[in-house]
């Protein structure tokens, strides 16, 4: 991104740099493009990177879109994603704000207790037993609560709150506002960027989450999209998602790839925002000096 210079070796350098970047672009995009092409595959054609547009068939999409199971899974995903963001963000803000107040007695001890859980994890089975003993198995609460607070996000938010000018909070307190009012009326309005960033962090993680639903839920009607996609891709319980007629309407690989495309689509729609806030977020929280 700096000024061009003209010597032949520098020109060669620029050429190789640009060639490398184009290479990265090709390696990133070709697999995704191929998925799209296979999803358009009609019967009797073999898949190709350059399937002619007049051969494109949308039959696989038509078959999937009219499956009630897909819509139920989409609804489940929506509930888990939005519900998860609401719970996670509330808990994270309510824990981060008190811990950002240096004068709070016992603050160091509490931060230490939380940090320890980041460094040492008791493991899968002991956690599973907790969820089981709470009677949360096969309910959404298991998925929503188990991963509700990320220590990393909590610490990033705490650092952000600490960086806000204290004079504003001080002024509100002198006017008689209590801690909740200060948080709600002074701190949160100033924290919109960090709330969006961390909300997106939680949202993406929830939307992509497939392991905890598999671990905690047994009722198939509760499963979110990634779990359904996994079943379609591995050919498990396919009959549940696509009716017998679908297999006659579109090739199996077209159905699989159409499912991949459909489930990626919502992520692609919010990706412009995600990219804007995430790249900032990763730098806010990357290292502590």
């Amino acid at each position: 991104m700096r000024k061009r210079s003209l010597s032949p070796s520098d020109r060669l350098f620029e050429w190789s740099i640009d060639l490398f970047l184009v290479g990265v672009l090709v390696v990133t995009l070709v697999p995704m493009w191929y998925v799209l092409m296979v999803s358009f595959l009609p019967f009797g054609k073999s898949p190709s990177l350059f399937l002619a547009p007049w051969d494109w068939s949308f039959e696989a999409y038509a078959q999937l879109i009219f499956q009630p199971t897909i819509w139920r899974a989409a609804l489940n995903s929506l509930v888990l994603t939005l519900g998860g963001v609401a719970i996670s963000l509330t808990l994270t803000v309510m824990a981060a704000y008190p811990l950002s107040r240096r004068e709070l007695p016992g603050r160091g001890l509490i931060v230490g207790l939380i940090l320890f859980t980041f460094l040492f994890n008791a493991g899968l089975i002991p956690t599973f037993l907790v969820v089981k003993d709470l009677g949360l198995l096969n309910t959404y609460w298991s998925v929503l609560l188990n991963g509700a607070v990320s220590v990393y996000n909590l610490l990033v938010m705490k650092t952000f709150f600490q960086s806000l000018p204290e004079s504003l909070e001080e002024a509100a307190r002198i006017d008689g506002a209590n801690d909740w009012q200060v948080l709600w009326h002074v701190v949160l309005p100033l924290s919109r960027p960090i709330l969006l960033t961390i909300g997106l962090f939680y949202g993406v993680a929830n939307w992509n989450n497939f392991f905890e639903p598999i671990l905690f839920l047994s009722d198939r009607s509760l499963m979110p999209l990634p779990v359904v996609l996994r079943d379609i891709l591995t050919g498990l319980n396919v009959a549940e998602y696509v009716e017998g007629t679908a297999a006659q309407a579109a090739p199996a690989e077209a159905l699989k790839m159409a499912a991949v495309v459909l489930i990626t689509l919502p992520m692609l729609l919010v990706y412009p925002w995600i990219q804007r806030y995430f790249t900032k977020g990763v730098l806010i929280g990357s290292v502590k000096e």
Binding site: F210, L233, M267
Partner: peptide, 18 residues
């Protein structure tokens, strides 16, 4: 190049199958 980071491993599994 940032995009694949945000895709679930299940989606990447689909891409790998392709």
């Amino acid at each position: 190049s940032y995009l694949p980071h945000f895709l679930s491993w299940v989606i990447v599994y689909g891409i790998l199958l392709a």
